[in-house]
Every structure is written in C-alpha cells, then in structure tokens.
Simulated assay, not measured.
Amino acid sequence: MNPSCALRVGLALLLLLLPGAAAAWPVDLSVDVEAGRERFHKLTVVDWVQVEDPTVASAELLPGSNELLLSGKRAGDTRVLLYAQGTFAVWRLHVRPPAGQAATPEPDPAPLLAAGRRACPGLEAGQGSEPFLRATVREGACREALLALLRTDAFHARDLELTLDLPVLQAQLAQLSPGLAALGMRASYRGAGVVLEGRAASPAAHARALWLLFQGSLGRVALEDRVTVEGDGEGGDAGTPPPAAEAAPGRDAGTVGPGSLDAGSVGPASLDAGSLDAGFIEVVPPPAPAKRRRAH
C-alpha cells in the first residue's frame, strides 16, 4: 500500500471512532413516494425527525417500533432531517404526482457539473451506476459551484471525496456563525470535526441549528453535539414557509444511528456506522504553510 492510500485508510478508520457525523450537502439518500401513498423504512435507533416542508410530505414513527412511515401529500420535493445520539442525516423526498398525472422533469445537472469543473481545477467526476466526485476546494467560487451542483440529485454524500483548504472552511464557518449565534449556539472546527456548543432555548432551536449546519456546509464533518436543549416538547418547522404548527418532529419522528443509509431505499434500512466515511471532511496534517481538511 502506498503512503497516500495508507493515510486515507487510517483516517477513514479514525472517523469510525468519532462521535457521529454532521450532514451537509449533498443529501444522504433520495426517496420517492407518490402523492397520496405511503412508504415504510426500518431504522435502528430513533430520536426524532423533522420534515422541512410538511405540506409536501410527512414522516411518522410508528409506536412500538423503529419503522418510519413517509406519506406523500402533494407533488414536489422536500427534505427530512433524521437525528439520534448526537448525529444526523438528511434525506431528499421526491413526491410524485398521482398515477396518470405528468411529473415535473428533473433539472439537468450537466451544466452545473460543467460549472464545477471550471471553478474547481482538477475536479474528477463520474455518473451512472457508481457515481463519484473528487475535488480540492481552494477558493470560494469552487465551494459555491459545488454547493449548487450538490443540491441536485446527481450525487449523494457517500459519492464524495473532497479536500477543503482551511481558508475555505474558515469562510464557511463565518457564514454559519451569525445564524447559530442568534439561536444561542456556536460551531468550531476542532481536530477532525466540528463542535456544536451552546444552549438551545427549545428543541425547535436545536433543530434549526442542525438545519443551518446542513444548508450552509459542503461535505461531511464529524459532529460533536454539546448543545444543552432547554424544555420538553417538539422541534419547530426548520425555518421553512409552512406554519410551525404543521411541523412536529416529535411526531414526524424517526432517525438514525451513527451513519447514513447506504442502499436500502426500498426495503428495510438502517443507518449504520460504517457507511458515512465517503462523505467526511477530515483534517489532514499538511506541510506548512498549507492546511487542509479532507473528505472521505
């Protein structure tokens, strides 16, 4: 094994020992459901789940089991945040129109991938049955181009190998900090991950902070969630347009163990520990003066 491969394997194994993963673009999994229909997923560990737009779909944890019931309400896309034991994942839910009605065509990711290649010299990507994307993110323009691409269904978290230069991570953190501070929390990159600290006034505030981490971050980092959550009850609506009363993550429940669903989008699925390493950002000890974090 050459030294670079040995480093990659060693860091991947190290990440399996870390306290969970913070989701960031892209999503971990895309799930299809028809409007007016339901779909079940079997998970291993469940704390809570929150649907970003509850007018599009709902999620319900069935009592006495770890089965997650997804129900399509109207045609459209939304996301669901799944949380357990200090870690979380995000799925995209595609709700198709009822049978016989025309579906809206999916956007073509090719122009966004081309823009990513221009903004990120050396980017390598392949699609098809085994998609992959490898890139070194040295500039903010590259980060923005990849965020636009990864908001599509072209790639999932497990398909990524990203290396982010430290200035890019610092700029990303600077963008996240005001929103987190308004919620009574702060984030910092330490070692091989990000630490989320502070005091959330409610489960809703804690949920909004996790959404902020996802929405404003590129790639994965190991998460150490040190937030103290005040009060009991359910989280809020994740800052989306629908009324907060419709978004009840305690009832829209479900979630994940320390990892992401790899295949299993049709039958029973569990979010197990070893399946997240493809999307992680790692801290790679660099030669001075460059400092980088690498995703696996």
Score class of each variant (00 low, 15 high):
residue 112 L to Y: 06
residue 54 P to M: 02
residue 75 A to S: 11
residue 98 P to A: 11
residue 94 H to K: 15
residue 121 P to M: 05
residue 43 L to I: 08
residue 51 V to D: 11
residue 47 D to F: 10
residue 99 A to T: 10
residue 36 G to C: 04
residue 56 V to C: 13
residue 84 A to E: 00
residue 117 R to N: 03
residue 32 D to S: 07
residue 52 E to C: 11
residue 33 V to S: 01
residue 84 A to F: 03
residue 61 L to D: 01
residue 91 W to P: 07
residue 115 A to W: 06
residue 93 L to N: 00
residue 96 R to Y: 01
residue 114 A to K: 14
residue 30 S to I: 12
residue 83 Y to M: 02
residue 47 D to Y: 09
residue 59 A to E: 10
residue 66 N to P: 07
residue 121 P to F: 12
residue 124 E to Q: 15
residue 47 D to T: 11
residue 111 P to H: 12
residue 71 S to K: 15
residue 43 L to M: 11
residue 71 S to M: 09
residue 34 E to L: 08
residue 38 E to T: 13
residue 119 A to Q: 00
residue 37 R to N: 10
residue 84 A to M: 10
residue 91 W to I: 05
residue 25 W to T: 05
residue 38 E to R: 15
residue 91 W to G: 00
residue 38 E to M: 03
residue 81 L to V: 02
residue 105 P to A: 05
residue 114 A to M: 08
residue 115 A to R: 13
residue 89 A to C: 09
residue 124 E to W: 03
residue 66 N to Y: 10
residue 96 R to I: 02
residue 112 L to V: 07
residue 109 P to T: 07
residue 123 L to Y: 01
residue 45 V to T: 13
residue 64 G to K: 13
residue 46 V to I: 14
residue 89 A to Q: 06
residue 29 L to Q: 15
residue 67 E to L: 14
residue 92 R to T: 09
residue 118 R to D: 15
residue 100 G to W: 06
residue 119 A to M: 05
residue 39 R to T: 06
residue 37 R to L: 10
residue 63 P to H: 08
residue 119 A to E: 07
residue 119 A to W: 00
residue 107 P to Y: 12
residue 112 L to C: 03
residue 60 E to V: 05
residue 72 G to A: 07
residue 97 P to G: 02
residue 32 D to Y: 01
residue 33 V to D: 04
residue 123 L to V: 01
residue 36 G to A: 11
residue 82 L to C: 12
residue 75 A to C: 06
residue 36 G to K: 11
residue 74 R to H: 10
residue 25 W to F: 07
residue 80 V to T: 08
residue 43 L to E: 00
residue 113 L to F: 05
residue 105 P to C: 12
residue 78 T to L: 01
residue 33 V to R: 09
residue 67 E to A: 05
residue 51 V to F: 09
residue 91 W to F: 15
residue 111 P to L: 02
residue 108 D to M: 08
residue 58 S to I: 00
residue 86 G to W: 02
